[in-house]
Design a protein around this nucleic acid. Sequence first.
DNA 1: TAGATTGTTAATCGATTAACAATC
DNA 2: TAGATTGTTAATCGATTAACAATC
Lengths: 210, 210
Amino acid sequence: MITNKSCIIRLSRYKNALYRLRALGFVKVFSDNLADAIGVLPSQVRKDFSLFGISGNKRGGYQVDSLIEKLNTILGKEQTQEVIIAGLGNIGNALMKYKGFEKEGLKISACFDIDSTKYSRDSDIPVLPLEEMKEFVRAKRIKIGVIAVPDIAAQSVLDMMTACGIKGVLNFAPLRLRASGDIVVNNVNLELELENVIYFVNAQEKTKVS
Amino acid sequence: MITNKSCIIRLSRYKNALYRLRALGFVKVFSDNLADAIGVLPSQVRKDFSLFGISGNKRGGYQVDSLIEKLNTILGKEQTQEVIIAGLGNIGNALMKYKGFEKEGLKISACFDIDSTKYSRDSDIPVLPLEEMKEFVRAKRIKIGVIAVPDIAAQSVLDMMTACGIKGVLNFAPLRLRASGDIVVNNVNLELELENVIYFVNAQEKTKVS
DNA sequence: TAGATTGTTAATCGATTAACAATC
DNA sequence: TAGATTGTTAATCGATTAACAATC
């Protein structure tokens, strides 16, 4: 199934919206309920679903429970996903402590750093030397990693993760990484996101003046 | 100038690439140097530039210095942009301490929280009660805010920022905020980004098997 | 001059939206 | 049955890519 990122992001949003709707007592939903909820058109919802073979009932909409289940299967959320973090600086630390992941079925299994003062083998989420990554990842068969190290170290950490058998990476270092092999890299660049806000604010102010 | 987000993101990337190229000694660049650097096609580079009235020299490429200057002007980076953060939890804290912003001309001017134990009026970046946001923002004419508060508080903080005169927001709360008036909201949803990586890893594994 | 590169126009591509037949 | 909603096909839209004349 080849689909684009924004389509998958919409599936996640549908899923989140459905949990809210279910909490409100909804048992079935129509494409326009979901469309309203995430801010797209009803035909977009139906199109997305048909792309993944999700079907509802003509005139009867979709059953909330089974829809959530199907979306979770597609998104790989039937089981808890274990994730490791490389780099225990500001961002790595925030991610480690962030409570939002747990309720999404994401478990931070360990953090890795080069600074030995940060090591703590016995804490809830162990902090280990980078050199132990391969052993840990292989033993636990972990597929997902987060890169939160300084820019200059990011490429070598990606290479290390690739060598460990990590299959997907969320990268916070603000530079383009060269991926070798078939590893998926998704970049989050906070400076760029802020710069983007600033551009559109300035653009809006200019159009208002003119 | 109405353009889409990905075009502006590319402008930021060109700019970053140009700094690197300049550091390597480049005085002029061609569209295919820049294309290589950020991973697009040369015609994309020229198209983007022509959209913003940036022109080079036929056969002579673009002057690095003046190109950087023009991009910085477009991106609103001629002067330091002051930013406030609402919410001093894990993410807010990481952003406050993050060194990457400073060298991008972004200054965190203050943080706001409801927890009085976090207040520190005299630190380098003051931490203030939420109620003082309006006064602070108006006095300093701040236009950009970051929302890093818990989900349930996010909408009310956006409303507060709107009331303060904030024009652009980077939102880390994983839910869709309703913007009133002409405020720009850019959402960063870390759970969604991770979920996305997981989906594509699973998708890739499936195609490899078959 | 010949060759290289821009800037712009046209073609392509893919994603979103609209329309509507099928049907519950 | 009449009305509402899906699922899919066709139309639209916008962004990316290719092509090429202009020109340095």
